[in-house]
Design a protein around this nucleic acid. Structure first.
Lengths: 154, 154
DNA sequence: CTATATTAGTTTCATTCGTAACTAATTGCA
DNA sequence: TGCAATTAGTTACGAATGAAACTAATATAG
């Protein structure tokens, strides 16, 4: 019979949320180091570019959805990308509030350069796992992503 | 034959680092929501308490090691915890720079109250997994934590 | 010894981030 | 129509963060 951890102490090194946080930060930082300096690109900016590179002509709100960023973060990243000429913005004729965002030529160029860097790091990680381990990892992530953590927050 | 993703686009939703980041942030945020308001405790403060609760009389540098926080973050968290009376600090007689940190009575009380909240969230997650899945998850985390992401940075 | 280098921890400063308030455009409904 | 409610995106502001400079204490080399 397996007993659940019910001690009066908590060991961070075995605490799932802590381990995920440290691991995730380490990976994100490593990847960002791979493009931040070279392309003067922050992580939120790269996320916006990553989405628009695969699916152009989204509104800021749609970008926010797909990146799990909040709309303020998207707004800021979009504006920096506009200033640096990596993004083009139009506004929808039907709804003059809604922006229509797409990578500029320059933005696409950078996008194509950063992708292999990002995928390279991912491979560096995934290559350490066997094929069945990769499949399990993906299936575990799917499950974990589905979990409802809050009581309810309509 | 399984082909590796070698496309000219990147789908964030399938990109491991992105998925880990979103998942980890969601979990950390949920847990922090469970104690921040109730105990006026930020995540870095809680991490410091969590370490000292299980292993008292550490120096700030040792706390930094064990929490994967940097020394500035530890210094700030420690000072806020001192102000709120949750931590006691002495200085080592052999080395008057080195602090010796431990939870105060009040700190221990809070520590004992927060632990079940934190573990509760962890269980909420782990309970969705089968026993073999949990084992695989732990073994995958062990492997991923071992990966060396940087070329070399002496 | 004494000058230099190193270490522990703090402070400073510039940037980032999140929340809330705001503006402008659109929708809905009376 | 016309006015309240909603939506897209921005701005403002305080808190959190990170890097670098700093202070005090200790270790080390000559």
């Amino acid at each position: 019979m397996t007993m659940k951890n019910n001690e009066n102490t908590l060991h961070l090194g075995e605490f799932l949320p802590y381990r995920l946080s440290v691991l995730s930060n380490r990976i994100s930082r490593a990847i960002a180091d791979g493009y931040e300096e070279q392309f003067q690109l922050t992580l939120p900016e790269w996320r916006v570019m990553a989405v628009l590179g695969g699916e152009p002509d989204l509104s800021a709100a749609q970008v926010a959805e797909r990146t799990a960023m909040d709309k303020v973060a998207v707004s800021r990243a979009v504006n920096k990308l506009l200033e640096s000429g990596r993004l083009e913005r139009h506004f929808s004729p039907e709804d003059k509030r809604r922006s229509v965002l797409a990578l500029s030529e320059e933005g696409q160029k950078i996008y194509r350069e950063v992708i292999p860097i990002a995928l390279g790091y991912e491979s560096k990680i995934l290559d350490k796992l066997s094929e069945p381990e990769k499949l399990t990892l993906m299936s575990l992530l799917n499950k974990l992503e589905d979990i409802q953590l809050h009581a309810d927050e309509n």
